[in-house]
Design a protein around this nucleic acid. Sequence first.
DNA 1: CATGAATGAGCCTTCATTCAT
DNA 2: CATGAATGAAGGCTCATTCAT
Lengths: 197, 197, 197, 197
Amino acid sequence: MSTKSPGKTREKLVSAAMELFAKKGFDKTTVDEIVAKAGVAKGTFYLYFKSKDDLIKELAFEVMPIMAMPSLNDPYITLSYPTLESYLLQLGKEFLDFYSENYRADIFFHMLSVRRRMKSLNEIYSQSCSELLREGARRITAYVKVGFEDALIAFQMFLASLMHYLHAGDCLGFSREHYLKKVISAVIHHLKLSASV
Amino acid sequence: MSTKSPGKTREKLVSAAMELFAKKGFDKTTVDEIVAKAGVAKGTFYLYFKSKDDLIKELAFEVMPIMAMPSLNDPYITLSYPTLESYLLQLGKEFLDFYSENYRADIFFHMLSVRRRMKSLNEIYSQSCSELLREGARRITAYVKVGFEDALIAFQMFLASLMHYLHAGDCLGFSREHYLKKVISAVIHHLKLSASV
Amino acid sequence: MSTKSPGKTREKLVSAAMELFAKKGFDKTTVDEIVAKAGVAKGTFYLYFKSKDDLIKELAFEVMPIMAMPSLNDPYITLSYPTLESYLLQLGKEFLDFYSENYRADIFFHMLSVRRRMKSLNEIYSQSCSELLREGARRITAYVKVGFEDALIAFQMFLASLMHYLHAGDCLGFSREHYLKKVISAVIHHLKLSASV
Amino acid sequence: MSTKSPGKTREKLVSAAMELFAKKGFDKTTVDEIVAKAGVAKGTFYLYFKSKDDLIKELAFEVMPIMAMPSLNDPYITLSYPTLESYLLQLGKEFLDFYSENYRADIFFHMLSVRRRMKSLNEIYSQSCSELLREGARRITAYVKVGFEDALIAFQMFLASLMHYLHAGDCLGFSREHYLKKVISAVIHHLKLSASV
DNA sequence: CATGAATGAGCCTTCATTCAT
DNA sequence: CATGAATGAAGGCTCATTCAT
């Protein structure tokens, strides 16, 4: 009755859940709806996930900021971006594109609001966040002569501004590109002045 | 049986709800618990709020970023802060203090994750956010000669960095003060360079 | 829509449950069926009982052996029964009548089989059982000069034989009355011989 | 992957089930747990048993009272026990030892509580019970000159008292031995007096 | 204004059973 | 004989909401 692709059941469940969360939010999406959309029986869900909360952890991982910046993990990528500006611009675009699938941002914010009550989620986030910031800072130091701490703060500000744009972007009406350019320029000014001290 | 203070019922409900949200999160807090803590009957809740979702709007308003920066609305306050640095520092401290009541941040993030599905909430947020940014920018232009747009972006970055610190602050381990100082310094560098163009 | 007798909801639930347990057994009876028979909504069940297991405790209490022998608690009753024989016969008849509502025996045996895993049930049973035996023994000593210990054992044997008849009675085909008479006679023989030692 | 002993699968399932019932009770034990403990796949269970209820019949048979008294079936055993007292004592000890594995008593009582709804179980019990009582009575008549009916009642009382001790033994605090002695003495008094009539 | 018993749709989860391999 | 992924009916329970008093 349904297309039997071997070993795809779990994936079907995950992507069905994603789509539904996008439309209705995490709490309002029921397991019934998920399995209906995935085309499997209710019990099947529980073969792959211990609970509905278990599923959100899987999804949470997929919407972590670190997943939004693939160029941060490609070791050879910097060759394509001669300047820090151009590299940050690339990261910024990737980030905003990734979260322009609105449900990703929603799930991400949802995670932030519940993580204190979900220990395992909290740990995943903290670790992934640390890695992201450190790797970002490391990349910056490859472009400009600056202390690691300053690079860290610069990258955190950069990331913060990107995130903020996700929910506050349309409060001002700047274009994405314009905002990006300005933010990057601010970050770079700061780095240069820090470097010269 | 309970102390009857006239006209206090609504307040009792709101503050009971706040306390519970702080402990258990919005979704996990039931109307039963709220009325129990407030010391009123179940039906009474619905005399004051159309629904549980109605209540969150009330609370959402109270945890808006704009509520976190009282100094932004005091027209005479700038007299106490001769430099932009000192003023931003004051705002930053107020902001972080305000949200150090953890449930405020939780409710705020919760709001961000659901606002697209709650029209009225979305409007409140957009408007309050616009006001906040505009007022922040206006204040900046009172300190430095800079275009309004640049001031807006600067203030947004400032705000973004503060918000990011709420959930990612401990991923790096900088002290609040150190982080604040660095962020402010970056913002100001940017403004000065923009101004001089 | 339903007959509204004040304060009768709980009773309606209990008696509906009893009837169903009689027909289908405890485990096979669902909360859905109970509320349907009681004519109330599902949620109402949980206003009166914390859980389905909670209900069984209530019922368990009502089918305790001690409830099967009202004459054991009437302080003046012995006046009506001049001899121990006649009194035990009365108790025996009461007991067998009580449990001839078959579901009572079923619930009772069910309780015996699960009590080790339900602490509170176990305590209720132990206590009620002790009381029953002690009171029975006390009554015996009012009729015959015999040590309390011997009276206890005699009464326990009497009770044991009654209980056994509940499930093994038809394995032999004696009439109730005949069996009762024989058991009582055995018990009394034992007591007389013990007394004379 | 697992040690393949030919033809042992059924036994592994039965003994795994026994162990689990001992710990968790019949209803709370799942087929999943049974097969996990037995080290076979889920489907394999259904090669050997039509259903889970089918399995309990197998187990029910193993905890029948008749299984608790091996000395009742040994035709030569009476040679070792010159008196009825000593023989009943032996039977009583065997019985209490057998059921001191608590799960046996639990399964037995479970069976009593459901047998009316499980025809085949009921038949097994009735038949086994009849056999047990008749054989017991037959043995008694080998020791004392007494009518078969009186022997039957005497043995039923004996058995009843043993069973009662399984769940009510600790309500009084007599030692097993003391209780046994007293019960046997009562039974024998009764038999002697019946015989002399 | 206030009550709280009653509601019932809906939730998450379990588990005996089947069947294609 | 054996497997184990898939099933789906059924279960116990929650909780926002209503309404007669």
